[in-house]
């Protein structure tokens, strides 16, 4: 099967990655899969108020994800939704294991992700940008985090779904089958999974294959992240 944009099943869209895109932040990055584009700023580690939120054993990580109102087909009303609140939370959980939070007790690191253009897989773009922005902010980290979405389209497993693919439907044995969407994040060194979500319908064997496919893509993405950070022109502030 050929994908609508001509990619192979294992291929993610063209990636655009840059760091130091927001001079005011302690660290920042842009990461895009095709037309899914995230800008992330990191502020901190900094003082955390109110005091009751402070943890004497470690730093608090707060992620805040949102879509720009104009980044979707029909204008989104500004402000958080149930969806953005959940994504912010799973993003936090995806990044936490990579960060040496114990180095900064009672403080906070804030990660803000704004999606300025969307074409599915935005949470994955946001996690990739956040990992870059955290490293760019000089935050002590055990490793990087890389994320991609894997989808089951009909009988095929594919990497980095577009909106068109996400909305794809096939009739199989008289039954309408929708795309199964599986966002997944891997830690670059330990190769552990820090984000796994799924909605759709898939067998366990197929899911295991999907995870393998996601892993391969994530390792490629972590290499892109590494190269992006190392570009010498980015190393100044």
């Amino acid at each position: 099967m050929k994908r609508p944009d001509g990619r192979s099943n294992e291929e993610f869209r063209t990636v655009e990655a840059r760091v130091d895109v927001v001079s005011r932040a302690d660290g920042s990055a842009l990461f895009a899969f095709g037309n899914s584009k995230a800008i992330v700023s990191v502020y901190g580690p900094r003082q955390l108020y109110p005091q009751h939120l402070q943890n004497p054993e470690r730093c608090l990580l707060r992620c805040y994800y949102d879509l720009a109102s104009f980044s979707v087909p029909e204008r989104k009303r500004p402000g958080p939704t149930r969806r953005s609140i959940e994504i912010s939370y799973v993003m936090t959980k995806a990044l936490e294991p990579a960060i040496k939070l114990e180095a900064f007790p009672n403080s906070v690191i804030d990660v803000y992700a704004l999606i300025i253009d969307s074409d599915a897989s935005t949470r994955c773009a946001a996690i990739n940008a956040a990992s870059l922005a955290l490293a760019n902010a000089g935050v002590p980290m055990k490793e990087l985090v890389s994320a991609v979405s894997v989808g089951k389209l009909g009988n095929e497993l594919v990497v980095d779904l577009t909106k068109e693919e996400e909305d794809f439907k096939v009739i199989k044995e008289g039954e309408e089958q929708k795309t199964t969407d599986i966002p997944i994040a891997f830690l670059s060194r330990s190769k552990k999974i820090s984000l796994l979500q799924l909605d759709g319908k898939i067998s366990a064997e197929e899911l295991f294959k999907a995870i393998e496919l996601g892993k391969k893509a994530c390792l490629k993405i972590s290499k892109i992240q590494e190269r992006t950070l190392k570009k010498i022109k980015n190393i100044k502030k």
């Binding site: 302690d26 660290g27 901190g44 040496k100 902010a137 000089g138 980290m141 055990k142 502030k237």
Partner: peptide, 21 residues
Amino acid sequence: ERFGVVDRSTKLLKVIPLSGV
């Protein structure tokens, strides 16, 4: 464990950060 430059001046290897608070 940080983004930075490796200091190999002794056997004790360090990463000198290029950014951070």
